[in-house]
Amino acid sequence: MPQVSLTVNGKKASAEVESRTLLVQLLREKLGLTGTHVGCDTSQCGACVVHVNGKSIKSCTILAVQCEGAEVLTIEGVAKPDGTLHPMQNAFRENHGLQCGFCTPGMVMSALDLVKNNPAPKDREIREWLEGNLCRCTGYHNIVKSIEAGAAAMRK
């Protein structure tokens, strides 16, 4: 079986995988990082969004072997090691931007990539950026508010 080596949340990791193993399967099943979720099988829902080499991607639509040597950031690597929430995570909490929590990791990872591209996103821009992140609980209202607030906190 192929071997894949990569850096996940700043730590070196390697594992034996099948060629057909997806990055999300590597993360969840081999590395025990179950914060990245799988909500669909057609690359629509975005529950699996992580950053690969600094960009948000859908970890359900990339093979683990394609990530050889890559730097991967998952939701588990977003807060400080002491547990202090990232301003974006904190904004989701303060604005009730999550209910069941299942889409939340993908939402936060997408939001962080948005802020990289657009430090002060507006309501409509956030909604358009979230085209690939589905939430069934919140109606997005509070997610949009959270991201606005998170971006503002990150600018400080």
Partner: peptide, 21 residues
């Protein structure tokens, strides 16, 4: 009141069934 459950969800440490092995 802000939610007590949010911390685990926001840090990717909820425990959904498929997370259990």
């Amino acid at each position: 009141v802000l939610r007590k459950e949010d911390f685990r969800f926001l840090t990717g440490r909820g425990t959904y069934v498929d997370d259990i092995n």
